[in-house]
Design a protein around this nucleic acid. Structure first.
Length: 197
DNA sequence: CGGATTTGACCAGCGC
DNA sequence: GCGCTGGTCAAATCCG
């Protein structure tokens, strides 16, 4: 799969961010894939290549030309979980799940999509609630969960589940090739400074 | 009034 | 089966 595309960050709508963009973009390679609870299978970059749940992974590197200090962020994509060969998830799920972890004071980040909150749950062993969102675009059943990291409350863990059947309403430039990218992100053929939203 | 959110109820896996 | 847990539903409520 593609390497080293320029990564456009999700829409950092400043009206919803108290911190600056640098805070928002403060990813570290090891920062993203900590899935929280024991029921989740989590992958490290080492074992994911051998995991049969992983359909694909790719590495995104910033071209370094912009002020965006995304450095070598890596994103995990994996399919529906299986147990004893039986899919546990509903078939209408696209089966693609992406999780990453960002340092943010805000739980909700504007990633360019419209989300409708449909649930909130306290999870075991965490003082922080987990919030459930569904993409509010018609016919698109992408979901995401947002929760604050249990052992480092400065971080927010966002898990996207599924692939949008539509483009982000705020994408102006995007590749004509339907590459698989994390929801809310777009691959760009070349570095760009413009973030239309 | 219409759409989003809140919140307890409900449900489905899973382990025992 | 039963209880625990996480995910979803939906009625009530909120808010523009």
């Amino acid at each position: 799969m593609d390497h080293h595309h320029h990564l456009q960050k999700p829409n950092p709508n400043s009206t919803h961010l108290t911190g600056n963009i640098d805070t928002w973009l403060d990813f570290e390679v090891e920062d993203y894939l900590v899935l929280d609870d024991g029921s989740e299978e989590s992958f490290s970059s080492q074992n994911m290549a051998s995991s049969d749940n992983v359909t694909g992974s790719f590495e995104l590197a910033s071209a370094g030309a912009t002020s965006a200090n995304i450095s070598n962020m890596q994103v995990i994509i994996h399919t529906s979980k299986r147990k004893n060969g039986v899919k546990r998830r509903k078939p209408d799920h696209a089966g693609v799940r992406v999780a990453f972890r960002t340092k943010s004071e805000l739980e909700v980040m504007d990633d360019g999509f419209k989300w409708r909150k449909y649930g909130k749950k306290m999870v075991k062993n965490s003082p922080n609630p987990r919030n459930y969102y569904k993409c509010s675009s018609g016919g698109c059943n992408v979901k995401k969960r947002v929760e604050r990291d249990r052992e480092d409350p400065n971080y927010v863990i966002t898990t996207y589940d599924g692939v949008h059947n539509h483009e982000s309403p705020c994408v102006f430039y995007y590749s004509h090739t339907p590459l698989m990218v994390p929801n809310g992100w777009t691959l760009q053929p070349s570095p760009s400074q413009s973030f239309p939203c």
